[in-house]
Design a protein around this nucleic acid. Structure first.
Length: 141
DNA sequence: GCCAACGTTGGC
DNA sequence: GCCAACGTTGGC
């Protein structure tokens, strides 16, 4: 695993866009972000970065891993030039989804933005956190 | 369905 | 530039 790659986490309600739909689509642009902090995170993503996919509200677990295939460009779903999207492509489903409860209960994940800033929909994940999550998910890249 | 957290908007 | 009102998100 290259140590230059950064890890991120994106959040979505499965009723709006589920991991299963994402797998079926094969690739998608991540639209609809209307929050500056989340937008800034999108703009910081580099091609090849790895992105955890979290199901909010229903499921409340990290279900899959994707990668950035195109860096930030203007959101095609709006004329408002403030907003951007990135292209994401699924890599694999996690062998064992990592639930919010597991994250909350793990001592090394207490500082995770998923807990600290529950409303943020695009957030960075530290390398250490990503290793813990991958271990919990019984998934290797 | 409720409510806490928090971002945005608009009046002053 | 402050802050009250309001809207949205997401856990419970």
């Amino acid at each position: 695993m290259s140590n230059k790659k950064l890890f991120w986490l994106v959040k979505q309600e499965p009723s709006k866009y589920s991991w299963e739909t994402f797998l079926k689509d094969g690739e998608t642009y991540w639209d609809g972000v209307r929050n500056y902090q989340a937008r800034n995170n999108l703009q910081s993503m580099k091609k090849g970065d790895l992105v955890f996919f979290y199901h909010s509200v229903t499921g409340k677990e990290i279900v899959g891993l994707a990668k950035v295939t195109r860096e930030a460009y203007p959101d095609p779903t709006t004329d408002d030039s403030r907003w951007v999207v990135v292209d994401l492509k699924p890599i694999k489903s996690l062998a064992h989804p990592v639930s919010l409860e597991e994250i909350k209960n793990h001592k090394d994940l207490q500082e995770n933005a998923l807990i600290r800033q529950s409303r943020l929909s695009v957030m960075p994940i530290t390398k250490k956190e990503s290793q813990v999550i991958l271990r919990l998910s019984k998934t290797t890249i």
